[in-house]
Design a protein around this nucleic acid. Structure first.
Lengths: 144, 144
DNA sequence: ATAAAGTACTTGCAAAATGCAAGTACTTTT
DNA sequence: AAAAGTACTTGCATTTTGCAAGTACTTTAT
């Protein structure tokens, strides 16, 4: 796994971002946090891409190290954890929306998120506000 | 390498985008095309991240397959090729800009692109227009 | 109270991707 | 005609991924 302490490949923003987010799995976890209200290990496992348990564990750890997500014990169940986006993580939303817009325009096979992204197409800024509002509500209910 | 003909992991836009762009190298080539006016194999090789020749060749091929870039023989030198962004590729610019904005805000080590992204911070839309204008000028000079 | 099920992992191992060095085929320059 | 340039390919060691199984702990069911 890419070690954040190691000297970076280059001082370019893009290479540094890609060292954190540049793989086929990491952003799917972030997607689940943003758009599907997922907060638990087993919920990430249940996504249609079927991430393997070892990959999921390593990516969650990497995201925590990068300060993009944080974790807390589940308030009602000691054997569970809750994962949630930090402010740094929430700042990824505009990028994810641009990624989705590109995919919706150019990859015609993708269908599941169509209805969701009809909303984006109509008013991306409003959609963005709604997503962030939903996250805030979750935080109010779960964080001290 | 991920085969575009294979059945996708899921019908989600994000997973489909990540199957094309989700690795540590692909977007660096796109970056070079957008922001550093690079168009040739040897130019991509000279980037500070030092991509290996086999990886570069495989990624260029993947990007051509995905319709993000196209290639043509160098007009003045049969042993060289020119690579350039297609319209589909140029549509990635907003995503790259959001990625850079996130990195500039949260990854303080990155420095090289600072001056470039001072411009973004001041007026992202204007920067975007300038980049696209520069690409158009290159096309006028090189494409039929 | 005990057994079964749930949860978040870890481990082992085969398969695939990456990274590095060297080689190849062709073209251009000297 | 020889040397250098260009865009690759190949071979091989190392790393990462993917899959199946196991582990340690907690909660639920009987």
């Amino acid at each position: 796994m890419a070690n954040p302490e190691a000297t970076p490949r280059s001082p370019c923003v893009f290479s540094n971002v890609l060292d954190i987010l540049g793989d086929r799995w990491t952003l799917l976890i972030v997607r689940d946090l943003f758009f599907f209200g997922k907060h638990e290990y087993k919920e990430f496992l249940s996504s249609p891409e079927a991430i393997a348990t070892n990959i999921l564990a390593s990516r969650l750890q990497k995201l925590v190290c990068a300060g993009i997500i944080d974790e807390m014990p589940h308030p009602e169940n000691k054997s569970r954890k809750l994962y949630f986006l930090t402010e740094r993580g929430k700042d990824l939303l505009p990028m994810l929306i641009e990624m989705a817009k590109w995919g919706e325009k150019h990859l015609t096979e993708t269908e599941v998120m169509r209805p969701l992204f009809e909303v984006i197409r109509r008013d991306a800024a409003a959609f963005q506000r709604k997503v962030l509002r939903d996250l805030k509500n979750w935080e109010k209910a779960h964080l001290a």
